[in-house]
Structures are given as structure tokens and as C-alpha cells.
Design a protein around this nucleic acid. Structure first.
Lengths: 212, 212
DNA sequence: TTTTAATTGTGAATTCTATCACAATCTATT
DNA sequence: AATAGATTGTGATAGAATTCACAATTAAAA
């Protein structure tokens, strides 16, 4: 039975993203329906896991047949909030910030980069790939005017903590942080960290500790 | 009691990375000892979590005092395999690949980018930031000669699946994948996916489903 | 030396997450 | 209309991860 209000674990939400990708892929392949078994097989999940995740939000399947793909895509997009446009700002126009600003996966997924912030006088008050670049001092004003809802942090390590704090203070509730900085934040905020060094370090760990 | 052989969950290993960062930070601040409580506070973990994680590998603390910071840094570096140099190749010299090649966090953490692969004739057989750029056809030969152990995938989506398959076939056992492609891989391999769109989608989800 | 305060390491308890297993139901076939 | 085959949704079960809670130990203070 559907219960959107019950707290859904992050792991379930992250898998919904993966299911959505699989559904789009199978739609391109010309399929109309897909079973939980097939969704699982393509992502190395059990079929029960797939069904349980989906059942948190409703009964979308047809017994004996599976899930109608285009319909489930729409449903998952609505659940994930991809039925609207999100206004995103990138903080830090270095190599990584620039790469993220160009990333096609963003725009196609309704994440629209409407502002870039930096402190370098050579970069500010220009545009980068048609996106206006502002001095970080303009943060509060621009966030208010452009109704920015999500921040992506790609500033240098040493200014990261202060930058994140200012973003929190400006009321941007969704933050994706590519730096090492860790900042406490209020409950109603969602802050996710992508830690490149950490990813490689756990790869390093498992390379050593496998039975070689 | 220490038991390095027992399978350690990924979540524990990932936290070790975080503890290590915290320890380095506190060393810079001039501290000599740190308690599990303080490590936890700086990362929003419980003190028990910190102690339990560390106790998987040994008894490193001093009761009443905490952990000797520089010593625990060395211990964690050894556990994570950061006491050696890892040879890394980046696949795809686009915006993201270029950004990763320049990323200072890599080299300082003993992850040494010794090769870049691409298929663009304008890029191959040159160097990028002093790193040689090879045509992907040279994959097997270069991997063997340079003893590459870790691959970072930053190629375009449509060639990603094939690229990853060739990397697996070439015997590179540690893979960090920045693309959407998902490829089945043998057990003794470790493949981690960083999914930017997925991260933003779960942020989107929680922004909608908080009590606003 | 004794006491007090701090902190670890860990077994037990709890909470959270994933899997199992099967009744219910749908489609297709005979 | 009846049967066979497929697949869902979910309560029950199992498994994993986290937190609790406290004895043991150390350092510092009295």
C-alpha cells in the first residue's frame, strides 16, 4: 500500500534513480513492459528489492505482466521531483566547476544551471557557456532573485567551509558538495557529499584485502 | 579484537576515510590526542560508531585519553593501502577527465595518474599536464607496461559500456566509474559508481518530501 | 595514595534493511 | 470456461548495521 509520508530510506531513493535509468534504457530498446526480475538483473538487485522499493509509493505493477514502462517512468519522475525545473548554482568555476556546468546529464534531467559563483575578477561578470558568472559577494541577492534551490560546491578546499556556511545561511536547502569540507547543517536541509579521495581509498582498501 | 580478515562492510571502510581526514585536520590544529566523541562530533557520527569501526582492526585507543593522532593516521593509512603508490589511468579526456587529471587530492593521496586514454586524434600521443595521452587501442599494452591498477572512467555515455568491459578484460581490478553505464563484473573486482544525476535526483526527492 | 573524571572496547539490545515465500491476480492458451 | 504460466505485493523472516550501556583502564587531581 502506498505511503508517501513514511520516511523512505536514502538507499531506496537512490535505487529509484537507478530503476528510472533502466526504464528509460528499456524503453529505447522498444520494450513496453518490464518485470521486477529484469530490472533487478540489469542492476544486480533482487526482484524482491525492486518490488518492495516501488511498493513504498503505490501499486504500479500488473500481476503476470510486470510494469508498464512509460507509465512507471512518469510515476518515478513525479516521485523524484523531476516533473519540475530545478534552479541550480555552481560554486567555483575551476576545472571541476566548469566540467559540471557543461554536463549534459544535468539539463536533460531538469536541473538547470542558472548561475555560477566565483571570486576571480577575471571570471566574474562574464558568462561561461551562456551561464552568468557572479562574484560570490552577490550570493544572497542572486539566490533570492533567481530562486536558486540547489547548490553544487566545487570551490577550493580552503574556502569550502565558509562557502558552504554562506550557502546554508542564504537558505539553499539542497547542497551537493564535491569538497572535503564538512559543515553541520539544519535538519530540513539535505547535503550530500561526493568524496573522490574517499572513493579511491575504499577501492584501494578492497584491492589490498581481496584474496590475491 | 583485531580481525582484518573478516569481511568489513563498505560503509565502515568509507568512514575510515572520513576519520582519516578528520585526524589530519586535527593534527594541523595542533592536537595530539582525539576522542571517539570528538571524531564523531566533527562528522555527525556517534562515538560508539567510531569506536566500533576502529575496533574491527585493532585496539588503537588509550582509555581515558583517546587516540594518539599521528599514530592513528599511520595505522589508517596502512589499513586503507595508502602506504604505497597506486597507478591510475583516466579514460576520457573531456572536461571531467581533464578536471580529474588535475585534481590535487589524488596525487597527495598516493594516487598517481600515469596515463590518460582517449580516441580523439587531436589529443592522443601528446601529454596533458605532463601525463601521456594514449589512444584507447593501446589499452592492454600500456596497462601491462605501466602496471596500472586503478581506472577512472570519464568517457561519453555511449562508449562507456564498451570501455568498461575492455578495462575489465585488461585485468584492472579497481574501477571508479563516473558514467551512467552499468556492467557486470567478476567478484574479485571492485567497481564503484559515482552518479551525479542520481545524487541530484535524491536531493530533489528530499527537497519535495520534507515538511515545507 | 586515593579519588575523580574521562574514555575505550565490546557484548547485548535495538533498529534498520533485505530477502523469502506464497496467496492473489492477470494473460494467454486450450 | 477452465487451466497453465507469469508476476506482483507483502507479511514473515533473516540478516546487517547501529546504538546502548557498562566494566575496565588510564590520567589527573586531591
Amino acid at each position: 500500500m502506498a505511503n508517501t509520508l513514511r520516511a523512505i530510506p536514502l538507499s531506496t531513493v537512490e535505487r529509484l534513480s537507478i530503476y528510472l535509468r533502466t526504464l528509460r534504457e528499456s524503453l529505447v530498446e522498444g520494450m513496453d513492459f518490464i518485470s521486477s526480475t529484469e530490472i533487478g538483473k540489469r542492476n544486480d538487485f533482487t526482484a524482491a528489492q525492486v518490488r518492495k522499493d516501488l511498493s513504498c509509493f503505490g501499486n504500479f505493477g500488473i500481476k503476470g505482466t510486470g510494469y508498464q514502462i512509460s507509465e512507471l517512468i512518469n510515476t518515478l519522475e513525479t516521485i523524484l521531483g523531476l516533473d519540475r525545473e530545478w534552479k541550480v548554482a555552481i560554486f567555483g568555476l575551476g576545472k571541476l566547476g566548469g566540467a559540471l556546468a557543461c554536463y549534459k546529464g544535468l539539463k536533460s534531467a531538469r536541473f538547470n544551471v542558472v548561475a555560477i559563483f566565483d571570486v576571480d575578477p577575471k571570471k566574474v561578470d562574464k558568462t561561461y557557456k551562456n551561464i552568468p558568472v557572479y562574484h560570490s559577494d552577490m550570493l544572497k541577492k542572486v539566490v533570492r532573485e533567481k530562486k536558486i534551490q540547489i547548490a553544487i560546491i566545487a570551490v577550493p578546499t580552503d574556502s569550502a567551509k565558509a562557502t558552504i556556511q554562506r550557502i546554508i545561511d542564504a537558505g539553499i536547502k539542497g547542497i551537493l558538495n564535491f569538497t572535503e569540507a564538512r559543515v553541520p547543517y539544519p535538519d530540513e536541509y539535505i547535503l550530500k557529499n561526493v568524496n573522490l579521495a574517499g572513493e579511491l581509498e575504499s577501492i584501494s582498501y578492497y584491492l589490498i584485502h581481496s584474496d590475491l
